[in-house]
């Protein structure tokens, strides 16, 4: 499978990555090469093979729905780019 710069731009938007227009052809070339490598998977017949999500086929362990962490909001917000009154600030979303 080969991707062009326009497809790269579409994927980049899905991934929330601002790719400069002049970089898109290089990413298109690299992604196409990676997908070509990945296409070697098609040589394998996998009909009826159960997909493996976990190496040890373990199920996700669940815990009781109880509060286990103390409130550390202030501590965690000291590393935030912008906060005010305990809230994370982002550009206005609703006009």
């Amino acid at each position: 499978m080969s991707l062009g710069p326009a497809e790269v731009a579409k994927i980049a938007l899905l991934a929330r990555l601002a790719i400069r227009e002049q970089d898109a052809p290089a990413y298109a070339r690299d992604l196409s090469a990676i997908l070509e490598l990945v296409a070697r998977m098609n040589a394998a017949d996998t009909a009826g093979v159960a997909p493996m999500a976990h190496p040890l086929d373990m199920a996700q362990r669940l815990r009781a729905d109880e509060v286990s962490e103390p409130d550390q909001r202030e501590r965690f917000q000291t590393i935030a780019p912008r906060v005010e009154a305990g809230l994370y600030l982002v550009p206005k979303v609703i006009e």
Partner: peptide, 13 residues
């Protein structure tokens, strides 16, 4: 892609 890769993962294992 992802499903196929996970099936191959099983073959490798």
């Amino acid at each position: 892609y992802y499903l196929k890769a996970q099936q191959i993962r099983r073959l490798i294992s």
